[in-house]
Design a protein around this nucleic acid. Sequence first.
DNA 1: AGGGTTTAGGTTGACATGACCATAACTCGT
DNA 2: ACGAGTTATGGTCATGTCAACCTAAACCCT
Lengths: 248, 248
Amino acid sequence: MVMTTKTRNPGVPPDYDPSQFPAFAVTVDVVILTMSEGLLHVLLVCRGEPPFEGMWAIPGGFKRPNETLEEAAKRELAEETGVGDAGLLTQFGAYGDPGRDPRMNVVTVGYLAVLRDVGNVVEGADAAAAALLPAADILSGKIELAFDHLQIVRDAVETVRVDLELRGIATAFLGPTFTLAELRSVYEAIWGVQLDGANFRRSVLGEDGWVIPTGRRAQPGASGGKPAELYRAGRMWKHGGPIRNPNQ
Amino acid sequence: MVMTTKTRNPGVPPDYDPSQFPAFAVTVDVVILTMSEGLLHVLLVCRGEPPFEGMWAIPGGFKRPNETLEEAAKRELAEETGVGDAGLLTQFGAYGDPGRDPRMNVVTVGYLAVLRDVGNVVEGADAAAAALLPAADILSGKIELAFDHLQIVRDAVETVRVDLELRGIATAFLGPTFTLAELRSVYEAIWGVQLDGANFRRSVLGEDGWVIPTGRRAQPGASGGKPAELYRAGRMWKHGGPIRNPNQ
DNA sequence: AGGGTTTAGGTTGACATGACCATAACTCGT
DNA sequence: ACGAGTTATGGTCATGTCAACCTAAACCCT
């Protein structure tokens, strides 16, 4: 059986025999992001076996021959959190450096999942082996990750930063209804900026389709303040977000 | 030898035995884009063997165990075009649908390469088996591609559209020196829009660092006109481009 | 020489955005 | 009950950006 995606070129001497292709293990790693206490958090699992025993790692697993990459990511997400539908599930990169897994040749495809609130979901899985950790602690190196998972988390967070502006994924972090302050806090946490509440309000409400008022009002916080109106996501979020990143 | 990127979770019964991982072939496919006659073109090779014999396909080949994905892409690019350095080489997606290759399980990683002018480069390779074809003809379905390569080209073109705005890729399509009209035509071709020459000029020259005047002037075209000044790329192109896409 | 073409440079007005202020509605502590 | 603090909401104002348009300069061709 000959495996050629590449056309055999008579002019170029093939220094590599296509009939003997190297076998790889293909895995899917899912970076699960969520907002918790105004900070971006990542769901990690604690490795119970060598190598990297006892270190934190991104949940992931093998791709099966009869499923697509996205199906594998969905399956891993469900196995790890019990959640069937993420607010967002995007592929953001493939990683295949030799030696990235000391045991064998493995190419992994990174998926990014955005969940509303995973606090209770994590308890459904093994609480000892899984935890939500602040993304800032991981990116700063304060929490060390197994394999090349630090780079993978870096790329995932960078992806979510860009997608927040280009594809308007902010509502994926929130529940079915939300206040404008909650929506704003998503932008502020992910971009690490502070946005003026009034200007944010004007940008979001300025054009129809972003948010739809429900008429109901949220419970005011413990510190008081006028109760905010509850909105739900409009149709426009499919075509990019209403807010631009102040840091270029 | 046990292959687990995923932590073994005692609570979740593993319905899939990690010690028996499925073997995949991993290939790298390179979508080579270039500007020719004001249109975006894709370098394709004609398949000489079944399946999809005689159809156009993206050049690609197997990843080797001791090279990174990017090194594999660079190698494929060099084998296919003889060019050592592309203006840009970016990974944009992984494809692993079951049955995408009828012969076996193969996961491919798509890379996007941007070249200045490949007209003469193609001749260096096998001229009969390789050709530059307009991207529009491929995306419209006028030219049929092997495997799932249509989807891969679609994603590559969409990536270059976004990267043109976010990462300022435009100069990768051009030679060491260029006129502002040539630079503008890159944006116009890829975004499918028409930009006002005067406004384009003001945006590009408005801030220092985008283009650097060389003092020399280009030869006027056959239709006459004031000869345009030649510029070279400045440092700013690393951090996003100066022009925004009118189509949001 | 003159019309057509392309680059180069300037003006104007609509619009988006950021900074700032004022008011309304709620919390809490006293 | 009352005031202080807090948050949401609504508005103004100055600034900057950007698209549309117009004019001049330099070159081709017939």
